[in-house]
Amino acid sequence: MATLVFLHGGGMGGWVWDEIATTLRGEGHKVFTPTFTGFGERSHLISRDVTHDVHVTDIVNVLTFEDLRDVVLVAFSYGGSVAPGVVARAGDRVRRVVYFDGIVPLTGKAVGEAIGYMKTEDAAGLDALLASGEGPIGTGVDEMQRNGAKEKPMKMSAEKQEWLLAHLSDMPLRGMVSPVTHGGEAIDKPVDYLGILGDVMDPAQHDRARALGWNVQTAGPDIDHAFIVGAPNRALDFLRPLL
């Protein structure tokens, strides 16, 4: 049986893996679903001091203090930007990496820049402002997603969408604008990437994954970026042969 550590997306928390984690645990796997600092049940820790590297440290500490080895690291969306740093710092504990429509970061660039939301100088300026103790603490991603779903409902049942949106929280802005210490090229393990066509990570992140030589498969248009909640069986079908 496998040991899996799941990395969640923006505005989420370990809670978002509930259905997938419950299924895998029922199949005998050891599953960890940590929440990044400033998100979810750790939202009380949100601050301007929470850089992207703090989130890497969150996961490295889980691997270290839980004494996890031979780990399958599974990264969704924002979590994809964290995975390379984890491998760079604790690669002896990781067997392989799986991306679910995740961000493929660039070394030294901010996540916001990597996904095309801002220019280098804008990210650097905002990072410096936050480091000085000024500027907004959070990104407002939770409200952006709720407002977006009003105009374009997610490809899932109304009940699942309501559950997902109700649990969203803000996330530290500094995590989006501080430099990423290790980009995708830092992963020296097998990487399998499931990308969702026609959604937020297509095509830039998918193309970047291919350029790194990762095994990239795509799905859609019947599912969307939030398929880990809307269509968890699709995620499980992709994941099981890799365990």
Rank of each mutant, 00 (worst) to 15 (best):
M156L: 05
R93H: 13
L164Q: 11
V191E: 02
F36P: 00
D127T: 08
Y117D: 11
A226L: 14
K152G: 02
D53M: 03
G13S: 14
V16C: 15
Q205K: 13
N61E: 12
G175D: 01
G184K: 10
V104G: 06
G85C: 03
R89P: 03
K152H: 15
R174K: 12
M156G: 08
P105M: 07
A149L: 12
G148A: 10
P190A: 12
R42C: 00
I20E: 00
V104C: 11
G198K: 10
D142H: 15
Y193E: 07
A131N: 05
A226Y: 14
S169V: 05
R95V: 01
L45N: 07
G28Y: 07
R95H: 11
M156K: 08
G11V: 08
P190R: 14
M118D: 11
G195N: 07
W163V: 10
T37W: 04
Y193F: 15
G148L: 09
D101L: 10
K152Q: 15
F227W: 07
P105K: 08
A211E: 13
V104M: 11
D127W: 06
D58W: 02
V94R: 08
F238M: 08
L239D: 04
W214V: 00
A204L: 15
L236C: 06
G195R: 05
D101R: 13
Y117A: 15
V191A: 06
M1D: 12
E121I: 09
D188A: 13
M12L: 12
F238D: 04
V31S: 02
G220Y: 05
G79D: 09
R240E: 05
H225R: 13
A123P: 05
A124W: 08
L73R: 01
N233P: 00
L236I: 12
V50Y: 01
S47Q: 03
G102C: 03
F36G: 00
P221E: 09
H225S: 13
L168Q: 07
T181A: 15
T33F: 00
H8K: 05
D53P: 01
S77D: 11
H44W: 05
M1I: 10
T218H: 10
L242S: 03
K155Y: 06
D170T: 04
E41K: 10
A128G: 02
A75W: 06
V111E: 00
D207A: 15
H8L: 02
V50N: 01
A131H: 06
V191G: 02
I103M: 07
W15P: 03
L212K: 13
R93P: 10
G198Y: 09
D207V: 05
V54D: 09
G148W: 11
M154Y: 12
G138N: 09
A124M: 14
L68D: 01
